[in-house]
Design a protein around this nucleic acid. Structure first.
Lengths: 221, 221
DNA sequence: AGCCGCTATATCGTCTCGATATACTGCTCC
DNA sequence: GGAGCAGTATATCGAGACGATATAGCGGCT
């Protein structure tokens, strides 16, 4: 699951582990709290499978993360000094996605089951890489899952005699699932609208957006 | 985390793995989806550490899960046949909590950090085993965590330019967190009310609720 | 007669997590 | 002015959770 997340972020910029984690935390609300104990192994894994490669900070200095250049000494190549942006740091390994990685990314994105909230949220966050009907499929599968979940929990809520606290937890869980369903339904509606009105537009959209299918109902945030 | 869940359920009834899983799924809305690949190892772990023991289906037949008795043959002792309730099944191992287990349960319940939604939900579901002020502490810690989380996510939401889908995910996550905070705050209010009005009553309380503040007072479980 | 589906337990490999160690830099505070 | 703390950065390890899979008995359906 982390593989997908890492590849998705690397799809846009080349990044190093620490920054990757930061973005995972606040750019992708779901799966905050990914630990370094997950990220670094994931990166090694992806590197040894050829989906990702480290960026050599050679002359010309790469775009985002690497140092501004002008290094000397035999191991200085691995050091980042006097960095333009943020403050002092240790040597970094900047990763870049490879063509094989891009392929793997698309495969992971479409293929795997839409299990839990985390992996669904992740997939949705990268949904712009999906064809419109695949996107719709993703949303509808998720809705079905949530409805099934609700059907499973609801009966319990108002039949079995539960302890107050337990009951409160179950009820709140059910409410959250209902919220989620409404959200998904809004997205589905927007998606369908976009599908019918502009049936031939290329789906990359790209660019920032605000675009979307008139961004799911109401105003900002 | 599963240890706590298992002990908590075993605190009420003796149960076997399969049933344990069922209850985990629909009695504790959070952490549905616990797999058998987690439960059985957890039970073995707990058994070998003496927190739990298997119930021998001796004469007199135990209460809930074990067979009704009348077995023969040398290994028939491990078989459940002609069970009164549900239909045919395979041999079961029914587990019971030990005094050491009860102690461990209380330790796990109060001690560990209130990290994620899962483990918080779990702790709250068993909150009746906690003293009122410990309960309040649990709720307040959780609230603080959620608020911190929100403060972390919110700024991102309305500053950085994100892709539509990504943005939607982040916003929905933030909304969910807000919901959660409201829920917790309701619980805190109710808890405080119970604490001030009936400062000496035993803290078992119980009773259904229709949730929310007020709620929680009335009669037996 | 064969097969499906449900109850039930068990194991295996892979992934994730949390704790911990290491390294370097810049800032604050005494 | 230098000691120590806080922040940036990578890495490893053990423990636990998950998903897939195997096994097994039983009942019912066709």
């Amino acid at each position: 699951m982390l593989d997908l997340a890492v590849l998705g972020l690397l799809e846009e910029h080349e990044l190093h582990g620490y920054e990757l984690r930061r973005r995972l935390r606040d750019q992708l609300g779901v799966l905050a709290n990914v630990s370094f104990g997950s990220i670094y192994p994931a990166l090694s894994r992806l590197e040894s499978s050829g989906a990702v490669e480290t960026v050599e900070p050679g002359p010309g200095g790469a775009a985002l993360a690497p140092p501004t250049g002008s290094l000397s000494g035999e191991w200085a190549m691995l050091r980042a000094r006097r960095h333009s942006g943020p403050r002092g740091r240790r040597s970094r390994k900047v990763y870049r996605i490879t063509p094989a990685g891009k392929q793997l990314f698309l495969k992971l994105l479409s293929e795997t089951a839409t299990d839990d909230a985390r992996s669904f949220g992740l997939r949705l966050a990268f949904a712009r890489h999906l064809a419109p009907q695949a996107r719709l499929g993703l949303l509808e599968r998720r809705r079905a899952q949530l409805q099934a979940r609700l059907a499973e929990v609801r009966p319990v809520t108002d039949s079995e005699p539960l302890d107050t606290y337990t009951r409160s937890v179950v009820e709140h869980t059910a409410d959250s699932v209902e919220q989620d369903i409404k959200w998904i339904e809004g997205l589905i509606a927007a998606e369908r609208a976009a599908l019918t009105t502009t049936s031939d537009r290329p789906y990359r959209a790209g660019r920032r957006s605000t675009t979307g299918p008139e961004a799911r109902e109401g105003g900002p945030r």
